[in-house]
Each structure stands twice: as C-alpha cells, then as structure tokens.
Design a protein around this nucleic acid. Sequence first.
DNA 1: TGGAACGATTATATTGCCATAACTAACTTT
DNA 2: AAAGTTAGTTATGGCAATATAATCGTTCCA
Lengths: 164, 164
Amino acid sequence: MSDPDARSAALSRVWAEMRALVLEDDRRKEVADALGMSFSRAKALRRLLSGPLTMRELTDLLGTEKPYTTLVVDDLEGRGYVRRTVHPGDRRRRIVTLTEAGRAAAERADRILARPPRALAALSPDDLAALDHVMAAIRSAGAGQDVMSLPEKRAQAIDPNSAM
Amino acid sequence: MSDPDARSAALSRVWAEMRALVLEDDRRKEVADALGMSFSRAKALRRLLSGPLTMRELTDLLGTEKPYTTLVVDDLEGRGYVRRTVHPGDRRRRIVTLTEAGRAAAERADRILARPPRALAALSPDDLAALDHVMAAIRSAGAGQDVMSLPEKRAQAIDPNSAM
DNA sequence: TGGAACGATTATATTGCCATAACTAACTTT
DNA sequence: AAAGTTAGTTATGGCAATATAATCGTTCCA
C-alpha cells in the first residue's frame, strides 16, 4: 500500500498527464488570434479585469520590468483598451483602467482560457467530483508552501486565474 | 446532484487550477539554464530520446517548418549532442541520432520536467490514488477524441511525455 | 527519360518578449 | 531645502522562435 516506488511512479504519471493536458492545446495562440494582439498584451489585459492598477502594480503582477509594462500599456492604450489617468494624491503614478472595449476583449480571452478541454469535459460526474476535491487539496497545499519555497519568486497571492 | 451549472462550475474550477499548477512554475527556463541551451533545442533533443528520426519526422513532431529544424539540429550537432547520417536506401534523408552526451542531456531535461511540484507531491495517498485514477480516465478520453476533433492539428500519437 | 515530387539546406526577415541604461518628475526624509 | 527614493518613460538592443523563398540533389513515376 505505502510503497514509495509506487507512489513516485503515480506522481510522475499524474504530473506528465497534467502537463500534457494543459500544454497540448496551446490556448495562447488562440487568444492572440482572437484578440488580434500578442499574448503578452492579453495577459496584461486580463490582469486588469479585477480592477485598475498602477503601472508598478501591473509590472509586479506580470513579473517583468517597468519599461516593458510601458510598452505593453502603450499598445493597449493605442487600441483603446485601457486608459491611463493620474493617481490622485500621487502625481507620479498612473492608474491603468480597462475601457469597455478592453473589458470585452479581456473577457473574451477569459472565456477561451477557461474552456476546459474535451477530455476533461467528458469526465463522469463521479470522476469530476473526485478531481474537484483533489484539486482543492492541491490549492491549499500550494498556498501554504509553494511560493515561500521558491527563493527568487516574488511573493504574491496565489490566484488560479493568473495562469496564462 | 446532476445540476449542470454546478458541473460547469466544477469544470472551470478544476481546469483553472490545473492550468495554474502547470503554468505557474515554468520549468522551461530551468531546463534551458541547466542544459545551457534555448528551450527549443531541449525540446528537439527530448524528442529524439525514443529513437532516431529523420529531419522530416522531427519537423512534424515539433510542429514547425523544415528550415527551423535544420537550424536546431545544426546547433545540437555543434554541441556534440546529435549526429546526422545518411538514410540507407534514400540518400535525400538524414537520420538524426542522439550521441551519448545528447542522451544524457535529454534525460536531464526529462528529470527536470518530470519532477512534480510540491503541492502535488504533498498529496495524501488517498488523494493521489484518486487523482491517478481520474487522470487515467482523462487520458483514455483524450486518446479517443481530442486530436481528431482539432482540425488543423497534425494527427499524432498522444504522448504525455511530449508536452513541453 | 524527363518532369514532378520530396528531403534538406541556405539565406533572409519578422515578430515577440524582455532587459539595461539613462532620464524626468514627483514625493519623502532628514 | 538638499539628498535620496519612487514612478514612469524613452531609447536602445538582444536573443529566441519561426516563417518564407530559393536552391540543390535525389527519387519516383508516367
């Protein structure tokens, strides 16, 4: 029952299968095509769905450097998807806000990314319930451990929606 | 019990969590750093683990165009990781074979990619067994359906190890 | 046997992603 | 108020990934 080799084999099997499922159909290309923009722009757009952010905040969330964020936001602003406004109370900061069109585009990206693959959708109710249960366990384990254990990773809330 | 909204919500939840788990820690960079080569080279190298391939076959597996494969294999050959030989019986074709060093590098990449994330490794035996069971169900569903249903995707054997 | 098809390569170009350096404007701290 | 810090931008550049076009030798087929 508690054979460590069997456990390790099961882990590898499961992990390989998960990776295959997620990586096999690359939604990124689909999102980029659907929105007519490169994926990094869509990623930024999606980050703004939960509310306006300053450039600095957006930079931190994207995990890149400030000048790159300027490039990305310039592009999005040019498309009419975001607006930059001055932060009241700190005129250095710019607040980036989605426009209506930007929100629509971000939601479109969301829908594409959220669409589960057929193999997942084909699961029996029982299997899905079991999977749901296990993934919840994984989430709580991850929230407690994973980020802290990665030295160079910026500490940030674990947000399943962040994966792109 | 069979509430379609609840099912759909569970599907989204599970899928988002899976994507987060797979995409959050990007092993690609780690592989690239460990092998001292760009990730696309490692990808090709890994493809050769299961045996020699012609340039055409490798091209199809990688899903890119022929000239790119030439570039990649040139690089790998320059590092002493692969050898090109002429196909006996068709002198147009080149057979690409891993060298010993190439195999070692590919296996190193494999080990990095196969290492399950902490949150997964922390699963209880019961949860892991349940997950293993469900992922097996997903694999059989995927093998029957998924590839055939994607129009522009080249038909190719589903290989969980292929995901990179 | 001559042309079509195929395998591979060379040459060239594009796009995406992202960094560093240097700068300006605004705020904070002493 | 001078010095330091922070937010953002401009300018520049690099590498990775990958495509297209043209070419060459080889093989297949009518």
